[in-house]
Amino acid sequence: MSNVSDLFNYWVVVFLMMAGFYVVIAQGNLIKKLIGLSLFQASVFIFYISLGFVEGGIAPILEEGVSNYANPLPHVLILTAIVVSVATTAVGLALAVRIHEAYGSIEEDDIQTLDLEADDPDEAPSDKPEDSPR
């Protein structure tokens, strides 16, 4: 069992992650959800990078006479993960733009209401292909 103060760093990161996670699941605005998602992911990145940290080390670019380097592997993983995160955000934003065009709103409640109306037996409005402009 570790001393509590040593783990404090991790707990700050956990708090940040949960702040982002809360925004994703609790907010009704789609763009805000995406921002929350990015926040959540960015905080996971901080967690990973802190794994790679070595007390007294330097960035893993070799120099004469230095033998203590930060762990490069988490850095590589997170470079990939950052790219994945921004890719997801970009696709999410494009979807949000399309949703705004199709529904006239990016609030989750409005979209659900409109979908429930469309679920009525006749499904009249949604059968026309022109309904969703690309």
């Binding site: 789609l30 999410g92 979807l95 949703i99 949604s126 969703s132």
Partner: peptide
């Protein structure tokens, strides 16, 4: 159907 977009989101 426009619900495709919201389902995808």
């Amino acid at each position: 159907d426009r619900r495709a977009v919201s389902a995808a989101f």
